[in-house]
Structure formats: C-alpha cells, structure tokens
C-alpha cells in the first residue's frame, strides 16, 4: 500500500515549487517557477478575457460582455457599499486584487494545476500590500489623527488601558489573519481533495465509489470556497479601506 510513497504523491506534493526556468537577478533567485507560471496565466486570462469580452462594446451586451460587466458591477457594488461613491478612486486596485485572487483560485481548481494562493508567502504579500496601503492612506488623509482609530467612541475612560491595546493588536494582526484565512482555506481544501482522491486509488474496488463521489461533491464546494475567499478578501480590503478613508468606527 505504501508503494506510491517513493514517487512522492503525498497530499503536500501538489504544493511543491518547481523551478521551470532558473533565473537570477542581483544575486536573488527569481526563477520562473510553476507558481509564477500560474500567476502569469491568471494575468493573461483575466486581462485577456476582460479586454476581449469588451471588444464589441455594444449597448446590449453579448454573453461574454455581460460576464465582464457583472464582474465589474459586483466589485463596484462592494466598493460603493463600503466606501461610498468617493471610494471609487480605489476601485481599480480593489478590482485587481479580486480578479487576481479569483483567477488564481479558479486556475488552481484544474486538476493537476498549481494553486498560487495555497502558499502563505503569496497571500501574506498580498495581505501586507493591503495593510500597508490602507495604513498609508489613513495617515495621508488624517495625519496623526488616524491614531484615533484605536480609541473607539463611547468607551469609558477606565476601560481605555484595556481597549486600546486590543485595538492596536487587532489592527496589527489584520495582515496575518487576512493572509492565513486565504492560505489555509486553499491549502486545506486542496489537501482534503488529494487525501480523498488517494483513497479512491487504494481502497478495495467495492468501496472506491465513496471517495470518488465525495471528491466530486467536495470539488463543487471548493469552487464555492475559491470564489468566496476572493470575495471575502475583497470585502475585508474595502472594510479596512473604509476605516482609513472615512474613519467610521
């Protein structure tokens, strides 16, 4: 039963980084890896689709165009709902985050492909970018006043020594929770799929149908999770942005 171990087909093998084109820049390893391949694929597919779909630019949209438009309206709706009309300044940025994560997640659902967001370093970089950008915007708009974010209104003064550190910690932990949520969801889902798929290989013939059916059902759930996580990441980005832009607490 342990025969396939030597070929390294464990549930974690799918997350391995393979250097397809070794490269180096100023002493840093910038090899074109399978992860990079899927990032580039996501970039090409997402922007290619959005540009190609809008080629007609017709008032009555074609099928492709209406998909592109509903993606646009979907993210625009999130931004408007959280940030108001003036938040549309940040719309391209938020949309890029959404479409990048969505494309990368969906590409990862192709059997045998690689899920970029299942690597903590990628999600953490994205989350850190969001956090740094939001913090910079906050300080740029409110100056030192942005620190009032840590002092919620209507809290009695004697609670302040307790509340303020909690607020500060919860602010500092934002990039970590943002990164880990996306990473853990993608990784856990794919690991689970792989584990159950491997049951199908090793179980006796009579029981093979169970893991296959479960894997099929779970793949559907994973598609939902892929979309949901892209959505959640976007929504939380907007909520953090709203803190920085409007300082409603």
């Amino acid at each position: 039963m342990a025969g396939h171990a030597a070929e390294n087909h464990g549930p974690m093998a799918q997350f391995e980084i393979k250097r397809l084109v070794p490269m180096e820049l100023f002493g840093y390893d910038i090899s074109f890896t399978n992860s990079a391949l899927f990032m580039v694929l996501a970039l090409v597919l997402a922007s290619g689709f959005l540009i190609f779909a809008m080629n007609g630019r017709s008032l009555v949209p074609s099928r492709m165009q209406s998909i592109a438009e509903s993606l646009y309206e979907f993210v625009a709706g999130i931004v408007r709902e959280n940030l108001g009309e003036e938040g549309m300044r940040y719309f391209p940025w938020v949309f890029s985050i959404f479409i990048f994560i969505l494309a990368v997640n969906m590409l990862g659902m192709i059997p045998g492909s690689f899920t970029v967001t299942s690597h903590i370093i990628v999600t953490f970089a994205l989350a850190l970018m969001v956090w740094v950008t939001v913090t910079l915007i906050g300080f740029a708009r409110h100056g030192v006043g942005y620190l009032k974010l840590f002092v919620p209104d209507g809290v009695p003064i004697w609670l302040m020594p307790l509340i303020v550190p909690i607020e500060i910690v919860s602010y500092l932990i934002r990039p970590i929770s943002l990164a880990v949520r996306l990473f853990a969801n993608m990784m856990a889902g794919h690991t689970m799929l792989k584990v159950f798929a491997s049951f199908a290989v090793s179980l006796p013939v009579v029981a093979k149908a169970f893991p296959v059916l479960f894997t099929a059902a779970f793949t559907g759930l994973e598609f939902l999770v892929s979309f949901l996580q892209a959505f959640i990441f976007t929504v939380l980005t907007c909520i953090y942005l709203n803190d920085a832009v409007n300082m409603h607490h």
Binding site: R19, L25, I30, T33, A36, V116, H119, I121, A125
Partner: peptide, 10 residues
C-alpha cells in the same frame, strides 16, 4: 521567486 513574480504580475 514567488514574491518577485507576484510583484511583477500584480
């Protein structure tokens, strides 16, 4: 390499 390509693609 992941960070580099993430930055480039994003």
């Amino acid at each position: 390499p992941q960070l580099f390509w993430l930055a480039v693609t994003f």
